[in-house]
């Protein structure tokens, strides 16, 4: 049963990477102080600051640290996971770590950008968010993603100019397409337009 970090497991070694995001984060949050704070957290063995963690040099730092410090968990304190979770999962995977052992702390969208006038409280909040992610990271388990075959057919809903183009492109790239149109004919709004800009030619 996976659930918590049991004694049988090897020692947990966490690397924390605190991103400045140029001035986006560092302009409000004292990232140096956050990094210092992260060093005091349990199981954290290395902490690094980066100007842009998502850029290649930043990612290379993570990969290097994973190898050098034998890390088995990574916490990236930067932006929202909705933008870069995939980036950093791929990054740690390239360094041989299971992608599910990477955790993010959102200190940009949920911190520096929304507390621009409150630098100290924002810094304390960033510390909390890092601490929360580190605590979660300690309990992360490697996961294997289930794989499924992809049905070789495409559905296009709507037979206006966009739907028609999409259906033709799918078909011309060799795929079976279903084009579903609500009206009795395809053509949509475009079919009712006489001449179209900028070429001033006919639409149909």
């Amino acid at each position: 049963m996976n659930g918590n970090g049991t004694n049988a497991e090897p020692e947990i070694r966490i690397g924390v990477f605190v991103c400045d995001c140029g001035l986006n984060i560092a302009g409000v949050v004292d990232t140096v102080a956050v990094a210092e704070y992260a060093k005091t957290l349990p199981d954290v063995v290395v902490v690094q600051g980066n100007k842009y963690t998502c850029a290649d040099p930043g990612q290379n730092e993570i990969k290097r640290a994973i190898k050098e410090h034998n890390l088995n968990r990574v916490v990236v304190a930067s932006c929202t996971p909705k933008i870069h979770e995939h980036t950093f999962r791929t990054c740690v995977a390239e360094a041989g770590l299971n992608p599910y052992l990477m955790e993010m702390a959102n200190i940009r969208e949920h911190c520096s950008w929304v507390h621009q006038q409150e630098k100290q409280p924002a810094t304390r909040k960033a510390m909390d968010l890092v601490r929360s992610s580190v605590n979660r990271a300690r309990l992360l388990q490697p996961q294997v993603e289930p794989t499924f075959p992809v049905t070789q057919a495409a559905l296009v809903i709507g037979g206006g100019v966009a739907g028609i183009q999409a259906a033709l492109d799918f078909a011309d790239t060799g795929h079976q397409v279903y084009l579903v149109e609500k009206e009795p004919s395809i053509g949509g709004i475009m079919a009712a337009i006489d001449k179209t800009y900028p070429t001033m030619d006919c639409s149909i």
């Binding site: 559905l155 037979g159 028609i164 259906a167 033709l168 799918f170 279903y178 084009l179 004919s185």
Partner: peptide
Amino acid sequence: MMDVGRHPRIKLLTNSEVENVTGFVGNFQV
């Protein structure tokens, strides 16, 4: 527009509406 009606790999369903979608990426049932 004509090409759509003629293309062997396009099944055109006009006067039609999607009533339900189930499944997930790569495997939708519509």
